[in-house]
Design a protein around this nucleic acid. Sequence first.
DNA 1: TGGAAAATATTGAATATTCAACGATTCCCG
DNA 2: CGGGAATCGTTGAATATTCAATATTTTCCA
Lengths: 145, 145
Amino acid sequence: MAKTPSKPITEHLAYLLAQANREINRQLDARFRKEGVPVEQWRILKVLSDGKGHSMGELAEAVLLNHPTLTKMVDRMVSDALVYRVQDADDRRKVLMFSSDRGKALTQRLNSLALSQEAFIAENYGNKATADLKRLLESLIEKAN
Amino acid sequence: MAKTPSKPITEHLAYLLAQANREINRQLDARFRKEGVPVEQWRILKVLSDGKGHSMGELAEAVLLNHPTLTKMVDRMVSDALVYRVQDADDRRKVLMFSSDRGKALTQRLNSLALSQEAFIAENYGNKATADLKRLLESLIEKAN
DNA sequence: TGGAAAATATTGAATATTCAACGATTCCCG
DNA sequence: CGGGAATCGTTGAATATTCAATATTTTCCA
C-alpha cells in the first residue's frame, strides 16, 4: 500500500491567504515605519476620518481587532493624542471615538503612503489581476459571513 | 473647495486580504478547536510530515513565523511530544526538526479537518471562484517576493 | 592558516494579545 | 413598574510575540 501524499500546505486557501496577507502587510508596515504607526492604527484612524463618532464595538469590527486588544491600542493612541473618547449621551454604555486634529493630519500622511503601495501593486501585478483579486476576496468575505 | 473623500478602507487590497485571512483562519481554528491545536502548529506538523528533517530557518519561512516565535512554539510542541529536535551533523549550527509518531497521528486528524474546510469553501463559494482566487494569490505572492 | 564576518538558533526583557471576569447601563417582558 | 437578562466596554492575569543581544558554528578571504 502506497503512502497517500497529503495535499501540500501551499495549496490550501487558508495558507495562501495567510502568506499573501503577511507579505502585503509587511510592505505596508515598512512604508508606515517612518511614521512609527502600525497598520492597525491606520485602520482605526481611517474609520474615524469620517468625523462621526464610532463606538468601540463598531470600531473593533471594522478594524479586525477584538475588543480588549482595541481598548488597549486606543489607550496608546489617546496617549499619543491621536484620538479621544466621548461617552455616548444616548447610550451611556457606549464610548464614541473621534480623531483629533493631530490624528487627522497623520491619517492623511498614512493614506498617501497606502495609496502609493496600492499603485505599486497595481503596476507590478497588473490592473486586471488586482481588480479580479479584490472582487474575489470581497465575494469570499461576503460568503463567509 | 470640496472635501476629497479618501478611498474607503474596504477597497484597499491590504484590508481585504486581512479580512479574508482573518475569517478563513477563524473557521479553521474553530475546526481545530477539539484537538486544541492552533493553525500554526498544523502548518509545522504538515511541513514535517515528509519525514525529512527541516531546520528551524526553513520551518520559520514555511510556516510564516519569525524565528523566536517559532522557537517558543516548538518548545511547546516538544513538551507535548509532537516533534523533536536533532542537531544537524553536517552543520552543527542547525537543528533539524522531526515529527513524532504522536505528531504524525495528530497531523492526519488535522489534515482531515482542513480538507473538510476546503471542501466546504469550494462548495459554498464555487469551484471556479476558489481556483481563480488561489491562482491569483499564488501569483501575487510570487510577484511580491 | 588565522581570524573576521556571516549564518543559525536561542534567550531574556519588553511589549502586545487573549481569556475570563467584572461594572455599568439598557432592554425587555411578566 | 421591577428585575433578570443582555449589551458594552474595560481590567487584570495569563499567555504569546517581538526586539535586541548572545552563543555557537561555519565560511571565506587576506
